[in-house]
Amino acid sequence: MAVEPLVAPAVEEGAKKSGVLWLGLAGGPRLAWHVWHDGAIHLVTGGEEQALPGLDALDRVRVTLRSKDNGARLVEFEAAVSVVDQAREAGAVAALAKERLNARDAEHLAERWARDSVVLRLTPVS
């Protein structure tokens, strides 16, 4: 079954304005930091990064974006989950590294993520 990208300005705008989102994972909603890059949400999990157990094994996940100002729900949607080939998608990794706050090894994030973590792409779908 083909996955159709969700063309919704509210999704892109909400993802660009907020650095965090909520994911519907087993065990309840999980807060995660992310970046919007190349038409999708990207995030990193595992190793020393945020723990999002089981996300990399899902085909789809429910995403909730909230207002940065007042926490109100902006938009909810389904997203296709895919693992990013970090060597081939260096732009996504660089965008994530740029937004990663308080990293102990900011200069070597990409190398650490390639070794210890998984970078995921969440593509909004209809």
Rank of each mutant, 00 (worst) to 15 (best):
G91R: 11
L65E: 05
N102A: 15
A110I: 12
T123E: 12
G19V: 05
R60D: 08
H37S: 07
E12Q: 14
G39C: 08
V61E: 02
P53N: 08
A95L: 11
R73H: 07
L96F: 11
L101S: 13
A15W: 06
D85V: 09
V84H: 06
K17N: 12
S117P: 07
W22R: 06
F77H: 10
A26Q: 06
A110F: 10
R115D: 10
I41S: 04
W22E: 04
V61Y: 03
V3D: 15
H34Q: 15
D38N: 14
V3W: 10
H108L: 12
A32G: 02
R121N: 06
L122D: 08
P53I: 04
K16N: 05
K17H: 05
D59G: 14
V81S: 01
L31H: 09
L122A: 06
V83P: 00
A57C: 06
A94L: 06
E12W: 01
L55Y: 09
R30I: 02
L23N: 01
V44I: 12
H37K: 12
L120A: 07
L109G: 06
P9E: 13
E49V: 00
K17I: 03
L55F: 08
L23G: 03
A114R: 15
V83L: 10
A90D: 11
W33P: 03
L109C: 11
S67W: 00
L109Y: 13
L6H: 00
E49S: 13
